[in-house]
């Protein structure tokens, strides 16, 4: 299994000379099983870099939540407009409005020229905390702490496992993040995975004024990854104002400060990670 980071930026795209290596596109990851089956995790602007769909093979997009930086690329996924390709979109269920209605707020005029209902072969799946299979992939979804309702995913295939928690604030209101795994949001998804792709949006200083905004610092995430016993931690959902230089510095500082029990992977745009 491999994971390719199609879009790594959080909140809003930020293309420019200062973000060339870590990238300017928003959240999207392509996961490919050894037999070639593909899953797309989130549909930020990075989804335009997804591999072309195999003829007639269904396309599966797993949305963590419906903030714009995670769905804004959806309307630009070519498979959506091909009547010969089934596109399955999996997203968080709500007690009040169906997924179609919530996605339709964006995929309809005046924000988008095409109505969701006019897409030719779209199948929606509303999910909460559950286990399901897609081809060779075993998937677990669970609600995690973020502003609004958000899911994290654990994806297993070929004897390997990956957890994807791009927007996550497990430290919210907690003084014991490290010592109480069963009371830590996302722990069940991340425990023992080979690769954890996780929110590392803020510096410690930035977090002080952004508590409750639904994101983590690199140090929070390092604590979480250590507690979960992951093999690799991939930095993800970079703060729009963070330059390549600053993200490199944050990573170097963490490595200098701590003896990390996992491989810290920088989360570069377009990088492919062997799970």
């Amino acid at each position: 299994m491999k994971a390719t980071l199609l879009g790594t930026r959080g909140s809003v795209g930020r293309a420019g000379p200062a973000t060339v290596r870590y990238g300017g596109d928003t959240s999207a990851v392509e996961v490919c099983a050894d037999n070639g089956t593909v899953l797309l995790l989130d549909a930020g602007s990075g989804i335009v870099h997804a591999s072309p769909a195999m003829t007639s093979a269904p396309v599966h997009v797993l949305l963590t939540h419906l903030h714009m930086d995670h769905i804004q690329g959806l309307g630009f996924l070519n498979s959506l407009f091909n009547p010969d390709i089934e596109v399955h979109i999996w997203g968080p269920k709500s007690s009040h409005r169906p997924l179609a209605a919530r996605l339709g707020r964006y995929l309809s005029p005046p924000l988008f020229p095409v109505h969701l209902r006019d897409l030719p072969n779209l199948i929606l799946h509303e999910i909460g905390s559950e286990d399901f299979s897609i081809g060779p992939f075993s998937v677990t979804s669970d609600l995690i702490i973020h502003s609004g309702r958000a899911l994290g995913y654990r994806v297993s295939a070929d004897g390997r496992s990956l957890a994807y928690l791009p927007d996550h604030e497990p430290a919210l209101g907690s003084e014991n993040l490290v010592s109480e795994p069963v009371w830590t949001s996302g722990f069940g998804l991340a425990e023992g995975v080979d690769v954890l792709i996780h929110d590392t949006q803020y510096t410690d200083e930035e977090y002080k004024s952004r508590v409750g905004w639904g994101h983590s610092t690199l140090t929070h995430t390092a604590d979480f990854a250590k507690m979960a016993g992951v093999g690799k931690l991939v930095m993800f959902h970079h703060e729009p104002d963070h330059t390549d230089e600053l993200i490199d510095q944050l990573m170097d500082d963490l490595k200098g400060d701590r003896d990390l029990p996992f491989d810290l992977v920088p989360g570069l745009a377009g990088a492919t990670i062997e799970v």
């Binding site: 609600l143 995690i144 907690s174 069963v182 009371w183 069940g188």
Partner: peptide, 18 residues
């Protein structure tokens, strides 16, 4: 390792602690 509590209980505890 014990099973993680549901997110609703985790958030309830966070609220209770405050």
């Amino acid at each position: 390792m014990a099973t993680q509590h549901p997110i609703e209980l985790i958030l309830a505890r966070r609220l209770a602690e405050s």
